[in-house]
Design a protein around this nucleic acid. Structure first.
Length: 877
RNA sequence: GCCGGGAUGGCGGAAUGGUAGACGCUACGGACUUAAAAUCCGUUGCCCGCAAGGGCGUGUGGGUUCGAGUCCCAUUCCCGGCACCA
């Protein structure tokens, strides 16, 4: 036996990292000779500097898949890059006086070191950094293409204004009325801005979700809800005594006979024109009050309905009735036509409004007998509806729409909640919008040959500070230019693009990262696209993933890429949590009171907790060295909480493979995982056992031949061979489904089997065979250790050896354990030969003493035999 | 309210309608050690029993089935998303 040197990651890991660098492992090539490709992609990050284990989880998952596909012989693309434009760089500049570019590139350097320490391998030759002109030139190119196709346009409208970021935001970036990043209450401002016409793609974005079986249902549901398709009709109500008509959208045109009033959004353009002099004051006051209200106030759920009558009447085209026109803020200016016909009988919101203001309610759908509720929104026969009477909702809709079309009043219409994407930002650190404003020619695109419009380096940090308009607007050397059309004096657009523009197509740039003529070469993109497995956080369920799908469809329409969907498989990983000190607590009887309100609030804990509640929540009380009592609980790792386990120190103390196993084994990857010392210990113990299995038997293993005839194996040898192949099947299947935790559990089981075998049988050809296959299967998870162990036996990389193939024959055991049930309860088990006849098996089962006891004096009614598994004897009496 | 997903030991979690609790952690007992750490061996869902064995057990109540954690119906609770979108 060779003396046992200890598993020493610090020696092993740097050595093999260098080796992989040398052999160009995971350097992608469009080598179609391999027959199959795998594009494994993790969402590229904003470069934030030092990384903690929370950042590393999805990169580790991607690395496992990329290495595994390499072993399987795929052409693998596993690239990385940086979503490098954005506000944090500006904020850092303002805080530390360092330029956004220097700060960004410094962070990138730091982050790269962390990735390298973890042994995560990328094709760095395809690295993409969005803040470089080489990249954002193509943002501008794509923007110009969109402009040409009428998909980029300028519009003056009420927009979301984030007072902290001092910039406008897209709808998708406003969560509960607050800026998604700043958390500040968003204001409405009327501004002229650039939009992308994502609404033109609404139907395709919705329909194609059905072509994505490997996406989480929850993400698809969120996108469907965001797109918000609704089918109905759009039609006109004439205003009494005016030439104006009020156009409304309704999903229930069949209820038109029950429309007893109309409601306009306060911002509706007709409001001022139809309001009668008597009502003018009240209406103007209401409109002004609405403007003052924040989005949050307007959306508060318990809000009572409010509104004001305009004094005007409309004519219900179905029955000629005069109905009053109101304004109310429950009708939104931005959806549909900004006006509704109110049908209180069939709409709960209208019901509430009608009740409050004493307006007429007519039911037009017969509710079921005994109906106690208010508005009835379900199906039923039409009543009080003239020629629709008796028809059920669907039929009635069709008939009324046909009638409207015939009368020229309106027609069927599909509406979406999705709005166009506002992409202008009044910030410095982003892609300049490649447009020129000329006094005589109007808006003129920058000619393609003049791209990129380079973002100027601002030397004084004060120049970067947001002031409510773009910092570039203070720099004539940037914006002063000549009009490409007339040659006269003109000004560049001084806004920059939303950084989500950058991330909407970066995965395509990876396929051809250095192309200087096009964003990417279609041939190369077509080789790699679509991404086979995309891994990232659920927070991008709508924003990034919707925009990326939109861009892919647009670029497809331009003929640049065949794929219409960018990501074939999507995986949203759970967060990594760390034990977190919430701060000192004092115990008052059974109640804990927090002494650090800031941290308490950040972790969404109440001011006080009972001891019982604290325990139930999984929290721990720890006495610190100074004698104070602290409240600890797991919380998502973050810089601001200071609870992140930092990659550098951890890897230097413990090792990368240990970190990788800890992350992958602790929980299913889609779940949250809590990083614990115990988990780390478990990972260490496991890898150490693997290491010793080889090192303690090294001489014998090396001397041992690997030739044997599987069919001739018997007893323990056959059992080991069988266990090996069960494991090959399990690990392969689990990797396919990203079930890393159960794959590692299967490897642990096989390790236990190998140790037991070694103790009883010593080193044999099957043992050597199994150990080497073991090392190969370990390789995606703990690559450094696997490579080290592999090189005791081979001179080339473990990642270049073909993934172990499954021997189906091996799975067929010559014996199996028969479970015997009586009336569905297990009463005995016995080992039976696989070629025993069914008759034989029934006889053996009934001969078991305990089974006999349960059969005694009973009549056998039925026997169910599940081959190679179980016999259930059903008895009576 | 609507949509999506859940509920299994002390904990993380396993289980194509066929042995519930794989694998790991924790805890306990033992070996090694002057001792500790590390390592190794064993026990670890609950209850009764010396044991053989038996009973109970996958949020709750029903159902289908020879057999249900798994399928169906109802219900409670938890997590996530959306929420006056006509």
């Amino acid at each position: 036996m060779v003396t046992t040197d200890r598993y020493n990651p610090h020696e092993i890991e740097p050595k093999w990292q260098k080796y992989w660098e040398q052999i160009g492992l995971l350097r992608a090539s469009e080598d179609s000779g391999r027959g199959k490709k795998a594009y494994i992609l993790v969402m590229f990050p904003y470069p934030s500097g030092d990384l903690h284990m929370g950042h590393l989880k999805n990169y580790t998952m991607g690395d496992v898949l990329a290495r595994w596909r390499t072993q399987q012989g795929y052409s693998v693309l596993h690239p990385f890059g940086w979503d490098a434009f954005g506000l944090p760089a500006e904020n850092a500049a303002l805080k530390f006086g360092i330029s956004p570019a220097d700060w960004t590139f410094g962070n990138i350097q730091q982050s790269k070191e962390s990735l390298a320490l973890m042994g995560i391998q990328y094709d760095w030759s395809r690295e993409v950094t969005t803040c470089t002109p080489a990249y954002y030139k193509w943002n501008q190119w794509i923007f110009l293409k969109m402009y040409e196709k009428g998909l980029a346009y300028r519009k003056k409208s009420y927009v979301n204004w984030d007072p902290v970021e001092q910039s406008v935001l897209a709808n998708e970036q406003v969560i509960d009325g607050r800026g998604w990043r700043s958390g500040a209450l968003v204001e409405k401002r009327e501004l002229e801005q650039w939009y992308l016409k994502i609404t033109d793609y609404a139907e395709r974005l919705l329909a194609d979700l059905d072509k994505l079986p490997r996406w989480p249902e929850k993400v698809k549901a969120m996108q469907r809800a965001w797109i918000g398709k609704s089918v109905g009709a759009e039609f006109d109500f004439p205003v009494k005594g005016h030439a104006h008509k009020i156009r409304v959208f309704s999903t229930r045109p069949d209820t038109i006979f029950g429309a007893t009033f109309m409601v306009l959004a306060p911002e509706h353009e007709l409001v001022a024109r139809i309001t009668t002099p008597e009502q003018k004051e009240a209406v103007e006051a209401y409109v002004a009050a609405t403007r003052m209200k924040s989005e949050v106030e307007r959306q508060r759920e318990d809000r009572e309905k409010t509104g004001v009558w305009t004094g005007a009447y409309a004519i219900n085209p179905a029955n000629g009735k005069e109905i009053p026109i109101w304004i109310a803020d429950y009708v939104l200016a931005g959806y549909g036509t900004g006006a509704i016909m109110a049908v209180p009988g069939q709409d709960q919101r209208d019901w509430e409004f009608a009740e409050k203001f004493g307006l007429e309610i007519i039911r037009t759908v017969e509710p079921p007998a005994g109906w106690q509720g208010q508005a009835y929104t379900e199906d039923g026969p039409a009543i009080n509806s003239g020629f629709l009477n008796g028809l059920y909702v669907e039929e009635a809709k069709q008939k009324i729409i046909a009638w409207m079309e015939e009368k020229g009043i309106g027609q069927a219409k599909v509406n979406y909640r999705l709005r166009d994407w506002l992409i202008s930002r009044q910030r410095y650190w982003g892609t300049p919008i490649p447009m020129i404003h000329c006094d005589s020619c109007g808006i003129v695109p920058v000619p393609y040959e003049d791209l990129p419009v380079v973002l100027p380096t601002l030397k004084d940090v004060e120049d970067i500070r947001p002031k409510g308009k773009s910092p570039l607007a203070a720099h004539p050397e940037f914006y002063q230019c000549t009009c490409p059309k007339c040659g006269g004096i003109a000004q560049r657009d001084t806004d920059t693009m939303d950084t989500f523009f950058d991330s909407s197509w970066y995965f395509l740039r990876y396929t051809d990262a250095h192309n200087e003529n096009l964003p990417f070469d279609p041939t190369k993109a077509n080789f790699w696209m679509p991404v086979d497995q995309y891994i990232g956080g659920i927070e991008h369920a709508i924003l990034h993933l919707l925009y990326a799908r939109f861009f892919t469809k647009f670029l497809h329409d331009l003929g640049l890429v065949e794929a219409e969907e960018p990501f074939e498989g999507l995986f949203t990983q759970g967060m990594v949590q760390g034990w977190t000190d919430v701060g000192e607590v004092v115990l008052e009887g059974q109640t804990l009171r927090f002494k650090n309100p800031e941290r308490r609030a950040k972790l969404e804990l109440p001011e006080t907790l009972t001891l019982e509640e604290a325990q139930k929540s999984g929290a721990e009380l720890r006495t610190h060295e100074d004698g104070t009592l602290h409240f600890w609980k797991p919380a998502t790792m973050s810089k601001s909480l200071g609870n992140g386990v930092m990659v550098g120190p951890f890897v230097r103390e413990q090792g990368a493979d240990i970190a990788r196993i800890t992350i992958l084994f602790a929980a299913p990857p889609e779940n949250e995982m809590v990083w614990t010392e115990e988990g780390v210990q478990g990972a260490w113990r496991y890898l150490n056992r693997v290491y010793r299995l080889v090192s303690e038997n090294l001489t014998e293993l090396k001397a041992q031949s690997e030739t044997f005839e599987p069919a001739e194996l018997e007893g323990a040898h056959k059992a080991l061979y069988q266990k090996l192949h069960q494991t090959i099947k399990k690990v392969t299947d689990d990797l396919e489904a990203l079930r890393f935790n159960t794959a590692i559990a299967a490897l642990m089981e096989l390790l236990n089997a190998l140790s037991d075998y070694r103790k009883e049988q010593g080193v044999s050809p099957v043992f050597r065979h199994a150990v080497l296959r073991y090392v190969q299967m370990l390789a995606p998870f703990a690559p450094h250790l696997a490579e080290e162990l592999w090189h005791h036996f081979h001179t080339t990389s473990v990642f270049h050896a073909p993934w172990p193939t499954l021997d189906e024959e091996a799975l067929k055991a010559d014996h199996f354990e028969l479970v015997v049930q009586v009336n569905g309860r297990v009463r005995g088990r016995t080992t039976v030969s696989s070629n025993a006849s069914e008759e034989e098996i029934r006889r053996l089962a009934k001969a078991l003493p305990n089974v006999q006891q349960h059969l005694e004096g009973k009549e056998v009614v039925k026997e169910i035999y599940v081959p190679k598994k179980l016999l259930n004897i059903v008895v009576r009496g």
